[in-house]
Simulated scan of single mutants.
Amino acid sequence: MDDVVAERQGGKNAGFFTGIAQEWRDRVQAYIEGAGSPALVQTWPDIEHKKNSFLNLYLSPADGSVQGNVLAAMRAHELSLCPACGEAGAPNTLDHYLPKGRFPHFCVTPYNLFPMCDACQTNKKEKTGDAVDPRFFLHPYFDVFVANQVIAVSVDPPFDAPTFDLAPAAGLTAPQTALVSRHLRELGILQRYARFFRNEYQRLLRLVDRLRAAGLDVEEHLISFRDHAAVPTSNAWQHVFYAAVVANPGLLAYLRNDNLPPYR
Rank of each mutant, 00 (worst) to 15 (best):
T233D: 13
F103Y: 15
L190G: 09
H77T: 10
D95S: 15
R210F: 02
A6P: 02
A214G: 15
A194S: 10
C117H: 04
V218F: 08
H228G: 07
D227W: 03
H96T: 08
L205T: 02
T163R: 11
C85S: 14
N112E: 03
V246H: 08
L166Q: 11
L204D: 01
T233K: 07
N52V: 08
A178R: 12
L255I: 11
F142M: 05
Y141M: 01
F197P: 05
V28L: 09
R206F: 01
A21C: 03
P110T: 06
P83F: 03
N148A: 15
P104A: 00
F145S: 03
G129Q: 05
E48F: 00
P140S: 05
L255A: 10
E186S: 13
A35F: 10
A84Y: 06
S80C: 12
L252K: 12
A88I: 13
V245T: 08
A88M: 10
L205G: 00
R75C: 06
F114T: 06
M116Q: 14
V245A: 12
A167I: 01
L216A: 07
D2N: 12
A169T: 06
Y141F: 13
I47V: 14
A30C: 07
V70A: 09
N56G: 06
E126M: 07
E126R: 05
T18D: 10
N257L: 12
S234V: 11
Y254E: 11
P232V: 11
A214M: 10
V70T: 13
Y263F: 15
L71K: 02
A6I: 04
A30I: 09
N69R: 13
H139C: 05
A214S: 12
V153G: 00
Q42H: 12
L59Q: 15
V70W: 02
M1L: 15
H49N: 04
A178K: 14
Q9D: 09
Q22R: 15
S65C: 08
L251M: 08
P232L: 04
A161N: 15
A14K: 13
S65N: 11
T173V: 01
L216K: 15
N56Y: 05
R203K: 10
N257V: 10
G64Q: 14
L252Q: 08
Y141T: 00
H96R: 10
M74E: 01
T109K: 00
A213F: 05
N235R: 07
A229M: 01
F114E: 04
Y31P: 07
R264G: 14
Q238E: 14
Q191W: 03
T128E: 11
N92M: 15
A213D: 11
R226S: 06
D130T: 01
N69H: 04
A152L: 04
G15H: 12
F137R: 04
P232K: 07
L81G: 02
A244K: 03
A169C: 05
S80V: 12
R212W: 13
G129W: 03
F114G: 02
A76F: 03
Q67N: 09
Y111K: 07
D133L: 04
